[in-house]
Simulated scan of single mutants.
Amino acid sequence: MSKNVYVVLGSNCFTGSHIVDALLNDPSNQVIGVSRSPEPKDLFLPYKRRQAANFQFYQIDLVRGFAPLVRLLDEVKPQVVINVAALSEVALSNERPVEYFDINTLAVVKLCNYLRTCSYLERYVHISSAEVFGSCDLPVTEEALFNPSTPYAVSKAAADMYLNALIKNFGFPAVLIRSTNVYGKHQQLFKIIPRTVIYLKLGKVIELHGGGKSIKSFIHIRDVVQGLRLAIERGRPGAYHFTVVSPQTIADVVYQICRWMGYDAGRATRVVGERLGQDARYWLDCSKANRELGWAPQVPFEQGVREVIEWVETHWAAIQQEPLVYVHKA
């Protein structure tokens, strides 16, 4: 889709910033990033390595600043709107569920109810979550019933259900993207893979909640972004799943990183209590994406993790100045 205008909502976040970076590979794309906070440090924004005249950033809060967002949309008339904006820290959703529903559900309803009337829109891309299905004993397809376990997952499932209704009732050109655990360079430092690397370098003990027994399928951000772009170009309205087939537990992942970095996993880790609402496994069936989009993951896990290790090593001085825990912005 050449010479398109893209608006990426949530462009400051890990996935959003990588989407912006990939779109800027094509100089004919005009890319507008929108987030409620100012742009973070270059350390967390892969697109900052570019001198991109075809990118503009606007600080707009989707919940508190809907009118300015509408004015921006009507001014730039994007063919494609990609919505990555969300609160996603699962544990906090138990304590502050209203905030999660405000941004993850109500803001989506308000935005898409408006977008369905906009003649310029060709595609709305929504970043959903595997957590809408809860714990899975078997791989689930895009048509599987939702079974969310946390307020976060409920808020994402509610938005998905609304989008499905828009697709059915109005032919709304929405594509929903669901993936399992995404990782890569520039990720928030409190996420398990960069945090493991950083804690090993600092000599801090890595806590394994519930013994690290939950099974996670880690997929590289480049593979997710490639799937998203294929869904924009070739996909039909509806959902697409992107994952890798992996039986690895969190403990397995941490132990592998310890080995690759030359540390004793037994000394570097300790078992602590399980998190509230922790699902045992997210298991997505991505055969639809394979079949309809020609998509398959390309980045081997070890390669992706070693890229993260190299990123941490390269930016170690800056990383040591950053918080290693999630900082909530009300």
Rank of each mutant, 00 (worst) to 15 (best):
S11E: 10
S11D: 12
G16L: 03
S17K: 06
A22N: 12
N29P: 11
N29W: 10
S37A: 13
S37V: 01
K41T: 10
L43I: 14
F44C: 09
P46T: 05
P46C: 08
Y47E: 00
A53Y: 06
N54K: 09
F55E: 05
F55N: 07
F57A: 05
V63H: 06
G65M: 01
P68D: 05
R71V: 04
L72R: 07
V80A: 05
V84A: 14
A85C: 08
A85Y: 08
S88R: 13
S88C: 04
A91K: 12
S93I: 01
N94L: 08
R116W: 01
A130I: 02
A130Y: 08
F133Q: 05
C136R: 09
E143L: 09
E143M: 08
F146H: 14
P148S: 06
K156Y: 04
A157F: 03
M161I: 08
M161W: 10
Y162P: 07
N164E: 12
L166K: 10
K185D: 07
K201T: 04
K204L: 10
H209C: 07
G210I: 03
K216C: 06
G227K: 02
L228F: 04
E233N: 11
P237R: 01
F242H: 08
F242W: 10
S246P: 13
I250W: 00
I250V: 15
A251G: 06
D252H: 13
D252M: 00
Y255K: 03
Y255N: 15
D264H: 06
A265V: 02
A268N: 05
G273D: 15
L276W: 09
L276A: 11
D279S: 14
R291G: 05
W295H: 09
P297K: 06
Q298N: 02
Q298R: 13
P300T: 00
P300F: 11
P300H: 03
G304N: 02
E307N: 09
E310K: 14
W311K: 03
Q320R: 15
